[in-house]
């Protein structure tokens, strides 16, 4: 015995089936149109600006940026505390030894161009990292890809301390990648 199926299976849909498919289709069309529409009207979108950059060149940009705007040093981690002027280009990277390149001090209400990428930073390799900026009220995540400069236009709206953690597996020291961004009111 085999299971035989009538060859004529293209009979019309019943009323319930028609109603369901119509509702589902309208729903899907709705979500389809909302994707581009929301990109135009939403206040927070994925950034659309990125460049190819060599890992070494980006490391130079980060080092120059840190030296130029350094205002202090975090004793425990040895990371520079860097306060760039409002509206400036900010260079920020995850390093090959599972650290962030600096602790940033930003001003609330001012826009910055945050360039993110991956550098060796004394480590053996520029890994892929996940930039996750977190506080108890806030959470935003972007990929850090070696060889690419991803430009995030950011305007911190609320003063406070934000955690910066890595959320893409980047090797054995992945869970040590904690840092912070300080936003002054």
């Amino acid at each position: 015995m085999s299971i035989s199926v009538e060859r004529i299976w293209w009979r019309p849909l019943d009323r319930e089936e028609k109603i369901w498919v119509t509702i589902a289709l309208i729903w899907c069309l709705g979500t389809f149109f909302m994707m581009p529409v929301w990109h135009v009207i939403a206040k927070q979108n994925t950034p659309n600006e990125s460049y190819k950059v060599s890992v070494d060149d980006f490391e130079k940009l980060v080092t120059a940026f840190n030296e130029k705007y350094k205002v202090g040093m975090d004793e425990n981690s040895g990371l520079p505390i860097v306060r760039p002027p409002a509206g400036s280009d900010v260079y920020f990277a995850g390093t090959g030894i599972w650290q962030w390149s600096s602790i940033l001090e930003l001003e609330a209400g001012k826009e910055y161009r945050l360039h993110i990428s991956s550098i060796k930073g004394g480590g053996v390799e520029a890994w892929q990292h996940g930039l996750s900026i977190v506080s108890s009220k806030f959470n935003a995540n972007f990929m850090i890809i070696p060889g690419y400069d991803y430009v995030l236009k950011i305007t911190p709206t609320e003063a406070g301390e934000y955690g910066v953690i890595c959320n893409e597996f980047c090797g054995i020291g992945h869970h040590l990648m904690a840092g912070k961004i300080i936003v002054k009111g």
Partner: peptide, 22 residues
């Protein structure tokens, strides 16, 4: 939703040089 990462050994960041708490 609170930002807890995937693929992470220690979200208390006990060994990290800059502390972070969820």
């Amino acid at each position: 939703g609170y930002g807890v990462p995937r693929r992470h050994w220690d979200i208390t960041f006990a060994g990290a040089s800059i502390p972070f708490q969820f």
